[in-house]
Amino acid sequence: MRRLSTRHSVSVRPGRTTLNRQAGWFVVIGVASTAGQALLYWLLRHWASPPVANLASLLAVTVLNTEANRRLTFRGSPVRALRAHLAAGGLFVVAYLVTTGTVLVFRHYRPTASPAAEALVLVTSFALMTVVRFSLLRLVVFGPRRRV
């Protein structure tokens, strides 16, 4: 009898289980991506301007992040790799504008700030963009298809 109730509760809330799994993988991938981008930005920042260092680090991380999310977070989705990466490209542009703008505003008020301080500011804005990215990927890119 207990087995029946367990099965019943799982079948009643499959969307919640899927959301929990997706959010869990997205957090793991997001933390790794944020740390990777901050480290790469910090390294590049010693030779490049903030916009160039951000562009290079964000581009490298976005490609890896999108593929990891496609394979782990949204596994089982019928969305093909090319479509996922093209959609992520649009999100990349928004993320680049927001994160670069944040760093440039920070540098305006703290012109002598170190690359490490810039990277910390970048992490904050990147984390905010990650929440937006998850929502849009889940709802628009990997969400259920509706036939009209």
Results as ranks from 00 to 15, higher is better:
1 M>T: 07
2 R>N: 14
3 R>S: 15
3 R>C: 04
3 R>D: 13
4 L>C: 13
4 L>D: 10
5 S>E: 11
6 T>E: 15
6 T>I: 15
7 R>L: 14
8 H>L: 14
9 S>F: 02
9 S>T: 05
10 V>Q: 13
11 S>H: 14
13 R>T: 03
14 P>G: 04
14 P>V: 02
15 G>I: 05
16 R>M: 07
17 T>K: 03
18 T>A: 11
19 L>W: 00
19 L>V: 03
20 N>A: 13
20 N>H: 11
20 N>V: 08
20 N>P: 05
22 Q>H: 05
22 Q>I: 00
25 W>T: 04
26 F>I: 01
28 V>E: 01
29 I>N: 01
30 G>S: 08
30 G>T: 11
31 V>R: 02
33 S>N: 11
33 S>T: 10
35 A>G: 12
35 A>S: 12
36 G>M: 03
36 G>E: 07
37 Q>I: 08
38 A>I: 04
39 L>K: 05
39 L>A: 06
39 L>Q: 04
40 L>A: 07
41 Y>F: 10
42 W>D: 13
46 H>Y: 14
47 W>N: 10
47 W>P: 06
47 W>C: 10
47 W>E: 14
48 A>M: 13
49 S>V: 10
49 S>R: 07
50 P>M: 02
50 P>Q: 05
50 P>A: 10
51 P>Q: 11
52 V>R: 08
53 A>K: 03
53 A>E: 03
54 N>S: 11
55 L>P: 00
55 L>D: 01
56 A>R: 08
56 A>M: 12
57 S>P: 08
57 S>N: 10
57 S>F: 02
58 L>T: 15
58 L>Y: 08
61 V>H: 04
61 V>Y: 02
61 V>E: 07
63 V>Y: 12
64 L>H: 12
65 N>H: 13
65 N>A: 11
66 T>H: 08
66 T>A: 12
68 A>G: 15
68 A>Y: 11
69 N>L: 05
69 N>I: 05
71 R>V: 12
72 L>N: 06
73 T>K: 05
73 T>E: 00
74 F>C: 09
79 V>A: 00
79 V>L: 00
79 V>F: 00
80 R>I: 02
80 R>H: 10
83 R>S: 15
83 R>K: 14
84 A>S: 11
85 H>T: 12
88 A>E: 06
93 V>E: 02
94 V>A: 14
94 V>W: 13
94 V>S: 06
97 L>P: 02
98 V>M: 09
98 V>N: 01
98 V>P: 04
100 T>N: 09
100 T>F: 02
100 T>P: 04
101 G>N: 01
101 G>R: 01
101 G>K: 07
102 T>F: 11
104 L>N: 08
106 F>V: 11
109 Y>I: 09
109 Y>S: 10
113 A>L: 08
114 S>F: 07
116 A>F: 13
117 A>M: 10
118 E>G: 02
118 E>N: 07
119 A>K: 11
119 A>T: 07
120 L>R: 09
120 L>H: 11
121 V>I: 03
121 V>C: 10
123 V>E: 06
124 T>S: 12
125 S>Y: 09
126 F>E: 04
128 L>W: 09
129 M>S: 14
130 T>V: 15
130 T>I: 09
132 V>M: 06
134 F>K: 02
138 R>F: 00
138 R>Q: 01
139 L>W: 10
142 F>N: 00
144 P>D: 00
146 R>V: 00
